[in-house]
Design a protein around this nucleic acid. Structure first.
Lengths: 211, 211
DNA sequence: ATCTTTTCTTAATCTTGATTCATTTTTTGA
DNA sequence: TCAAAAAATGAATCAAGATTAAGAAAAGAT
């Protein structure tokens, strides 16, 4: 699976604020973990940007510094890099209610080596690192929300490493497809193969065996 | 590498508090990220327990619920599980200034599937989930410290997944040994092989090639 | 100082999943 | 609505690393 290195310009549309277009999916998610006053909710809304992202367009490309975190309110994004064999390697998918960013670049200020691309037409709620730091000063409660979100993300990644090291590729495919049957329907097979760390040919082979 | 299933009883000694034995390695670490008043420092000290752990003894065993987080002030611990082939699989090492716990069990309250064992005689500063939650109420500033620690841990794990998927086992060994030469000297080779996801025999083969 | 346990090494054979390349099927866009 | 691109399949060959089974060396314990 060779990847086209020619990138189409990002098709990102910034959605204007209207009372019916508030980033409520984000504040709803935050309110699962901490309570928010009207004012705090407003402070959050003022700090974020809602973006509609066309399928296949990019929110981040290699050699650019990642300056934002994105909360997926609808759709699906993927984070991937091009490995030495010039194949795409997906390291992360983000669907509704997940955050996606390249923390390595975001924290260090160094250029990213990742592509962040919409797998479906999606809507994200974005906040820059700078705005987020300001927001933490203004609404310290949010530290707790992000601590919990980070902790869950870390736990999920630890579990993923456990699976990588304890199952064969075939086992991992079966495990994944039984745990996330709906997600399997949403993304092309070659992306799943990439995420699970093997080739599309091998995925075909596994599927052929089980039909 | 078969693992003895017979576990020696943990040899954990709780160190009595003396003015010269405060958990200052922890508060020093916290103070790299946030400022602490005398009172706050005292509140932290009252919530934690300092423990000396003999090499090879366990802080956590499978089927027990993980109830604590541990900050390593000296020494080295490892987190591992027994895979289907009855081999040890190490998922995490923690050395000075790193936190170690099984977040999956800690968060869910379900029994752990991991062993947490001292690789060297070590000293850890432990805090129970309960005490930590109380501490977050008493010293909300700590949310920020833990958010930052979690974010770094997550970023490190993401990078690890990137390496797993972009390098061969041999490349990953060379990369690891050039990045952490000192750590290589601290742990037995078979543990490195396990952490890197291959057999001790393969590690020997790699080393033989490069001498 | 020596006995025991732990760790490391070597080598032969075997397996899983990669590679290569061709073909078919599905999706997309003008 | 149909051509072109993207995605999925199939089969033959290949390679990285596992497995098995010794034995050697190093580290601990008494």
């Amino acid at each position: 699976m060779k990847t086209s290195q020619v990138l189409s310009p990002p098709k990102v549309r910034i959605i204007a604020y209207t009372s019916s277009m508030m980033p409520s999916s984000l504040t709803d998610h935050i309110k699962k973990y901490i309570s928010l006053t009207e004012t705090e909710e407003q402070q959050i809304c003022n700090a974020v940007t809602v973006k509609a992202i066309k399928k296949k367009s990019f929110l981040l490309e290699p050699d650019h510094v990642c300056k934002e975190l994105h909360f997926v309110s609808s759709g699906c994004l993927r984070l991937y890099f091009i490995n030495k064999k010039l194949n795409e390697q997906i390291t992360l998918f983000a669907i509704e209610n997940w955050w996606i960013t390249d923390y390595e670049s975001l924290d260090s200020g160094r250029p990213s080596s990742y592509y962040m691309q919409a797998v479906e037409n999606s809507e994200v709620i974005s906040i820059s690192k700078t705005k987020l730091d300001e927001l933490f000063e203004a609404v310290p409660k949010l530290e707790r929300y992000f601590r919990i979100v980070q902790q869950r993300a870390f736990a999920a990644t630890q579990t993923r490493i456990k699976y990588i090291y304890s199952m064969s590729d075939e086992e991992r495919y079966h495990h994944f497809s039984s745990r996330f049957p709906a997600f399997m329907q949403r993304v092309p097979q070659y992306m799943l193969a990439s995420y699970l760390g093997f080739t599309p040919q091998f995925l075909s082979k596994i599927r052929a065996k089980n039909i």
